Amino acid sequence: MQSDRIRPAPALVVMGVAGCGKSAVGEALAAELGAVFVEGDRLHPPENVARMASGEPLTDALREGWLDAIGRRIAGSVGDGQAVVAACSALKRSYRERLRGFCQDIVFLYLEIDPATAKQRVGSRRGHFMPASLVDSQFATLEAPAADENALTLDATRPIADIVADVLGLFEANS
């Protein structure tokens, strides 16, 4: 974690594989920051949801429109003078760069988790389109943020309140 160079930004993207807690952490951070929360899963086109629900992983091409929809939401909130927290897997560096094309000042919060815990969490969810069978494909696609990216890496198995407190503390210390 490069915490000494992370500065508060108008946009924070909580990222990681399915089951890492993006939505729960993102909602809690947005509430603490008084920010708009963008749930990336809700912006998937119906055909992407159907593919994933049937156990088919998305390709880079299928993710493009979805990433653009999230990027537009982030840019719209920032353009309106509002802070924004988005939940988006942002698994590859190219996906994060695509999001930065809409808003340069994004901090990524990578919630790191092991495959077994992610599969267990996804398998116990009810009412979500993502099956546990796709967790392995998410890990296969994952490119953890590099040292030159504006990103924090935190342990996703810790309590949500602790993760939120860590992020807020880092922002406060570096503002």
Rank of each mutant, 00 (worst) to 15 (best):
T59V: 07
K119Q: 15
R98T: 11
A90G: 12
V36A: 06
E143S: 09
E32T: 03
L154N: 01
P159L: 05
L111R: 10
Q104F: 00
R158T: 12
S23Y: 05
T157E: 13
P131Q: 02
A146E: 14
A30C: 07
L91A: 04
L67P: 13
V122D: 04
E112I: 00
V85G: 11
V17Y: 05
K92S: 02
I113P: 05
R158G: 02
G21A: 05
V164K: 08
V107G: 05
A9F: 01
R63N: 08
R121A: 07
P8Q: 09
K22P: 04
A24C: 08
A53G: 13
V78N: 02
V14Y: 01
L109S: 08
V107A: 07
R98C: 07
V164C: 08
G123L: 03
T59K: 02
A31L: 09
R100S: 08
Q120V: 05
A69W: 06
V135I: 06
L109C: 12
S133T: 15
S3D: 03
Y110A: 01
M52H: 02
F139E: 05
L58R: 09
H128C: 01
A165R: 15
E32Y: 01
L12S: 01
A83N: 13
E27Q: 15
E39P: 11
R73H: 14
D4F: 09
R96V: 03
E39L: 03
P10L: 04
E97Q: 15
H44C: 05
Q2T: 13
S124A: 15
A87D: 02
L134S: 05
L152R: 10
V25K: 01
Y110H: 15
P145M: 04
N174G: 03
R96W: 06
G127R: 10
D162E: 15
L168M: 15
R51V: 00
L33H: 09
V25T: 13
L29Q: 10
S94I: 13
D80T: 00
S23H: 03
T141D: 07
C103P: 01
I113H: 05
G16T: 12
G19D: 04
K119C: 07
L109Y: 10
D136N: 13
S124H: 12
M52F: 02
G76N: 10
I163D: 01
A11V: 11
C88Q: 10
R73N: 13
E64G: 02
T153G: 07
C88W: 11
D60A: 13
F129I: 01
